[in-house]
Design a protein around this nucleic acid. Sequence first.
DNA 1: GTTCAACTGTCAAGAATTTGACAATGCAAG
DNA 2: CTTGCATTGTCAAATTCTTGACAGTTGAAC
Lengths: 224, 224
Amino acid sequence: MERNPWFTSMPRAQREALLGAGELIHVRRGAMVFRQGDPIHAAGGGFYGLLAGTIKISSLRQDGREAILAVLEPGNWFGEITLIDGSPRTHDATALEALDLLVVPPEAFAQQMRDVVFANAIAAMLAARVRMLYGLTEDATLRSLRARVAHRLLVLARGDATQSVQLRRTLMLPQEALAMMLGVTRQTLSKELNALADEGVLALGYGRIELRSLDALQALVSTG
Amino acid sequence: MERNPWFTSMPRAQREALLGAGELIHVRRGAMVFRQGDPIHAAGGGFYGLLAGTIKISSLRQDGREAILAVLEPGNWFGEITLIDGSPRTHDATALEALDLLVVPPEAFAQQMRDVVFANAIAAMLAARVRMLYGLTEDATLRSLRARVAHRLLVLARGDATQSVQLRRTLMLPQEALAMMLGVTRQTLSKELNALADEGVLALGYGRIELRSLDALQALVSTG
DNA sequence: GTTCAACTGTCAAGAATTTGACAATGCAAG
DNA sequence: CTTGCATTGTCAAATTCTTGACAGTTGAAC
């Protein structure tokens, strides 16, 4: 665990305090960590640190369609919003693979927030998230599909919300999941991805997207 | 100022500390408070409290198109992200009307962040913003145009990011501005707004949108 | 090694949105 | 009151995206 990028988003002393206050649990593939509508004090609810596995943050609508907001990788913290503002969960969190998860109960989290260093770390985490979301919101309103695809791939390569040490070059996710994040159909995305692959920017495989040229992707984001 | 909804997002003692540490300035209509790319220590940069006037947060792209992220009303704080993570501004802030603005310099903001109550207030502010942005991101990927329109109108009625005491029933903004927030053309939006007006949910005027039935709008958001 | 579900590529028809254009109206400045 | 600019409503053609369908491919479970 000492080698995880936890380091970057949480000072050592506070990280160890969380470890002491929390509980390490194992979650099997497909199980849900929390659900839309869960109140703050739901059983097993709290602030989470993802040690191993990947987790999907999504929401389901009446018509059965699903919006995937994020796919989190090890080293990310999540679930703090509900603990801060007291509102119920607004999304579902589902384990895409088996997880090792640190669960910090609401009371322990509140206790930690009385530590000014911890509160600052949380603020920094949230600031990074706001920045990323501003970017994604801009996407929807301003950029072409091609630029949105490029931008989202780079965000995913960064390992989502919180900053990460190194970029991931190969993303293991089906095109359908990416399509759901972008709000387009699988067919439309498939066409765009293949166009990018033809240009050598990406390489595609079964449930796999390889980023060949980060520079080219970044250029696509900038030029709209 | 004591009657502004500042109360809701910042405890009294911390609010007064900001007043003491900051400077009240007047900004004329059309002037920019900060620009995309401005570094943290740009002249006049800092954390802002909007006392009077409205301000537009937007970004401009190479092709000249503009994305409006938010239109802030009095009682809102903004500009904290850059001070927290040290990155340059990612957006432009332009005065739509003459402003009364409290400017808290970066050093004073950093000083305040050593106060655990203040840091918690900032975290709560950011959490509310993340929550709102999650909602807007979901819009783009999941909801119909009609539902997106309804949702955005409600968000604007709430006076944007931070929570507010009362809803605004009449929004003073041209359809084109709303279209830019939603990422559709003025024509498409006009058609949709008029359809909603025909149903009695809205009333339209020159540069004005009146929310006749908040319940109906809320229902549209829920049903997708 | 076989089987099966998940994933991908592709197509045609239909729906929704954009583009470009034009006329009508509201509001403010002189 | 008049002038001028900003704003709105509307239309047809072009474009983009979706819907629904089907076949081929991959990888994992048995």
